[in-house]
Nucleic acid binder design. Structure first.
Length: 841
RNA sequence: GCCCCCAUAGCCCAACCGGCAGAGGCAGCCGACUUAAAAUCGGCACAGUCAGGGUUCGAAUCCCUGUGGGGGCACCA
């Protein structure tokens, strides 16, 4: 057998390496956190838990790769790291699969979980498998119900009748957050319609200010994009509430405006057609107006959300035959109903200032209502802008108040402040804030979710299920009609739904709805702390030890939904006294998507890269290195741009170095001090730079640095100091330790070849030696008028004076300066000397 | 309409507080090994940083304007 073949036979074989180490790790269980007596500092690294719809896909591979890099990194830095895994296993896909294929949602769900667990086993993220949870287990959702009861006690869970988003395909209501900007359901893609229903809500709007203001604490720690999205979503808007009298009506009508400065320009009022006020005013109008209003209301409700949101749409409305009185000037203004005013924002009514609001102007021009300019707005040329009636453009800018009595002459900002004062003095208004955010609608008319722990009596009264009776266990799906029909399948489980009150003997009925699955995921990071505790949702002492989550990793698709709900529930837990912090996730990494040929992968488009086949063909390590190396983790990865073969080649190169060291007779534990100085410097630069790079999520750069280190070490082995040199061992050990973040199998095998015991995952990183980071010589660049003219090799300790003298002495520099006069010399040792000149006098 | 992010070799991407545009990879080319190929190894070449203006001794980096791309919010008063 030739040496060549011999080598090949012993070559890098990822399958053999995986098979070698998997059983060893499963035996060692190295990633169980919080063992007794472990007093290392703590880190809680969490990946957003997966939904079990089939096997893992490339998106999972990416997200869990990044989370695992960070978990393994902090272990290497000497931390006790909690890195748990669980499944977000309630939800519609299970139910839809059940309907389509006639299987039990429970069976379908748990079979998928088993498949994902098996894939994770090979992919080998460093999970603590002793804390696994599934939100569809009664042991978990019991605590959803407990949270619901706590919130019910505090008045944070309530029921109301309202116009809700209705998904006609899934036949259930949706939260606002689940309706996309185009008016379709994020789940089914159906066009969402409005329905008036009585539903359960969580009062998240009570927390709007805190949810918004606390985002400031996350600045620089969360992606700006996510902070921005949350701010937009909460949509705080400050202004004033102004009360208008309506002739013939006892109570005054409040409206919200951000522009109380323009009160004198309010020439009509508009109410939302689907508001109670509109119905009341129409009822008191002439039969003719009543009929017009009825027709208008019906037509408005038929509009789809998409049509409604089209801003170019022509304004419509009907006069309600009533007049309001402007509180600042006593003027009578007509009251209209128009669908450009929304019933559920502010008070469902506005004061219309057509001169200074484009929507009001459009309406006024269409229905020939008066327009009064109250703010003199100037253009760039200093001239007053043309009259809105002429131009059709409302004057939205800043200016000086006119036609506004006591406000005349004030600027916009001053007038806003003064107007609020005046309103407050007269008792007809006050400063006010409104939000875009609405309360969180949590009931769903579907089966596969957490039953709402409420009992209904025949007289319509409600009582909570006592805590001692939890969990309210979801009944078997057998015999239930799961098909979407607009009412909850649980209503059909008569035996389950009927309860006899032990005290009164009265017959009670269980609430047939289940909770939005975002309730499940809004607190799961607490449950991991006490996953096996049957007596409480989580142990506050464990929370004190581990929480909040130090590092969260997940997709930006949850930027609003899951993250907002989680922040809300965390604040509620804080207010209930269970925890002493208010933000659940201190740092967050949002990974990009894995694309193929520029498009999102999907089976229907036929551009699918299968996780399972990639894992089989290339192994976990090559896959993980490819994902980490593809670019910044936040960016999308196009699978067409990357090379898994290239990653495998790199891993084989790294592995062969360990093989060479093993073959050289080098033994572990010896001093590195006598090793090759140049290689040692390279190794220590890597050790010095890698932590900062990982902490800045520059995983691609760390992999590049590892490649570089492998390259220089290869050179040292082949044409330098040779494999037996201590510096080579030092370098390869450093490579193995850092590589273990990205390629745990290969690194473990290298570690063993270097003569160490498993596992490299628990090895504390070697410290960089500062003495090896200083160079003796530096290259000083000399610029003349911004152009590089010479490079000088000088001692690293060179003084500014000596550097300048050397620069001036350079022949190349003197040539560049010529007979021009030197006007400025900037010296920045040890980097650069910059000489500025001007023509000789 | 309002707000946010991005733009560097053919491609994916580096470049610290403003200081030599290149770390790494893919693809390409040349060479070694091989009967040959693959694998492996060695080497080479490639842009002046989207455009225009400004600040500065010095700009990929800071500021302004524009173009292109991506994202969030939107008849929200």
């Amino acid at each position: 057998m030739s040496e060549q073949q011999d080598r090949q036979a012993e070559g890098y074989d990822f399958r053999a390496i995986q098979d070698r180490w998997l059983p060893v790790w499963e035996d060692l269980r190295p990633f169980e956190a919080g063992k007794a007596g472990d007093d290392r500092p703590k880190k809680y690294v969490l990946d957003m838990f997966p939904y079990p719809s089939g096997d893992l896909h490339m998106g999972h591979a990416e997200a869990f790769c990044f989370g695992d890099i960070l978990a393994r990194y902090w272990r290497g830095r000497g931390y006790d790291v909690l890195h748990p895994i669980g499944w977000d296993s309630f939800g519609l896909p299970a139910e839809n699969a059940a309907i389509k294929r006639g299987v039990d949602p429970r069976e379908w769900t748990y079979a998928n979980i088993e498949q994902q667990k098996a894939s994770f086993r090979v992919y080998a993220p460093s999970f603590d498998w002793s804390r696994v949870l599934h939100t569809s287990d009664p042991e978990y959702y019991k605590w959803n119900q407990w949270i619901f009861l706590k919130m019910y006690e505090k008045g944070l869970a309530y029921r109301k009748a309202s116009w809700v988003n209705w998904d006609p395909v899934d036949q259930t209501v949706l939260a606002n957050e689940q309706v996309l900007a185009d008016g379709t359901s994020e789940r089914s893609g159906a066009v969402v319609v409005k329905k008036k229903l009585t539903q359960w809500y969580f009062r998240i709007t009570d927390y709007a200010d805190r949810l918004l203001d606390d985002l400031d604490q996350l600045e620089g720690k969360w992606p700006t994009k996510v902070l921005n999205m949350q701010r937009n979503w909460i949509g705080r808007s400050r202004g004033a509430e102004v009360e208008f009298e309506i002739e013939g009506r006892e109570q005054r009508v409040p409206v919200f405006t951000t522009r109380p400065d323009t009160l004198h320009g309010a020439t009509f009022m508009v109410v939302a057609p689907d508001s109670d006020l509109a119905a009341e005013l129409a009822a008191g109008a002439s039969p003719e107006v009543r009929m017009q209003f009825q027709a208008y209301l019906e037509q408005a409700q038929k509009q789809s959300e998409i049509d409604r949101q089209n801003a170019d749409r022509e304004k419509t409305g009907v006069f309600l035959d009533h007049f309001a009185v402007n509180p600042v000037n006593g003027e009578r203004i007509p009251v209209w109903a128009a669908d450009y005013v929304l019933a559920d924002y502010g008070h469902g009514a506005i004061m219309a200032v057509p001169a200074h609001d484009q929507r009001d102007l459009d309406f006024a021009l269409k229905f020939e209502l008066p327009v009064r300019v109250v703010l003199d707005v100037r253009g760039e040329d200093g001239e007053s802008l043309p009259d809105p009636v002429e131009s059709g453009v409302a004057l939205a800018g800043d200016g000086t108040l006119v036609n506004s009595a006591e406000l005349d002459g004030l600027s916009k900002a001053d007038a806003i402040a003064r107007a609020v004062e005046i309103l407050e003095e007269r008792g007809t208004g006050r400063a006010a804030t409104t939000y875009r955010l609405r309360d969180w609608l949590i009931s769903r008319q579907r089966y596969w979710g957490t039953p709402i722990p409420i009992l209904h009596a025949e007289d319509g009264s409600m009582q909570p299920v006592p805590e001692s009776a939890l969990p309210v266990v979801l009944p078997s799906s057998e015999g239930l009609d799961l098909k979407p029909k607009g009412t909850s399948p649980l209503g059909g489980a008569t035996e389950w739904a009927t309860v006899v009150d032990p005290e009164t003997g009265a017959t009670l009925t269980r609430d047939p709805d289940t909770m939005d699955t975002f309730v499940d995921s809004s607190w799961y990071y607490f449950r991991f702390l006490s996953a096996n505790d049957g007596t409480q949702a989580f142990d506050p002492a464990e929370a004190k030890k581990w929480a909040p989550v130090d590092q969260y990793v997940g997709g930006v698709e949850h930027a609003i939904l899951h993250l907002l709900y989680s922040r809300f529930i965390t604040k509620v837990m804080h207010d209930l006294g269970y925890i002493d912090f208010e933000e659940p996730f201190l740092d967050m990494l949002n990974q990009g998507m894995v694309l193929l040929d520029g498009a999102k992968m999907s089976k229907s488009k036929g551009n699918l890269v299968e996780f399972a086949s990639e894992l089989r063909d290339h192994g976990a390590d090559a896959l993980r290195v490819t994902l980490a190396f593809a670019g910044p983790p936040e960016d999308d990865i196009d699978w067409a741009d990357v090379s898994v073969q290239g990653s495998a080649k790199f891993l084989a190169r790294a592995w062969r170095l360990a093989d060479d060291v093993q073959g050289s007779g080098s033994a572990p534990g010896a001093s590195f001090a006598s090793g090759d100085a140049a290689l040692r410097r390279a190794t220590h630069r890597l050790l010095a730079d890698a932590p900062g790079l990982v902490e800045q999520y520059k995983f691609n750069v760390v992999v590049a640095r590892l490649m570089e280190q492998v390259n220089v070490t290869r050179k040292a082995v082949d044409s330098g100091c040779g494999a037996a040199d201590p510096a080579v061992r030092e370098s390869v050990e450093a490579i193995a330790v850092i590589l273990s973040l990205f390629a745990p199998y290969t690194a473990e095998d290298m570690w063993a070849k270097l003569g160490h015991e498993p596992t490299v995952a628990l090895v504390t990183w070697p410290e960089a030696d500062p003495a090896l980071l200083v160079e003796d010589e530096i290259t000083l660049v000399v610029q003349v008028d911004g152009k590089v003219r010479d490079r000088l090799t000088l001692p690293a300790s060179v003084s500014a004076e000596d550097a300048e003298a050397a620069a001036r002495a350079s022949a190349a520099v003197q040539r560049a300066v010529g007979d021009r006069a030197v006007v400025n010399v900037v010296v920045r040792v040890p980097k650069i000397v910059s000489i500025a000149t001007k023509p000789a006098a």
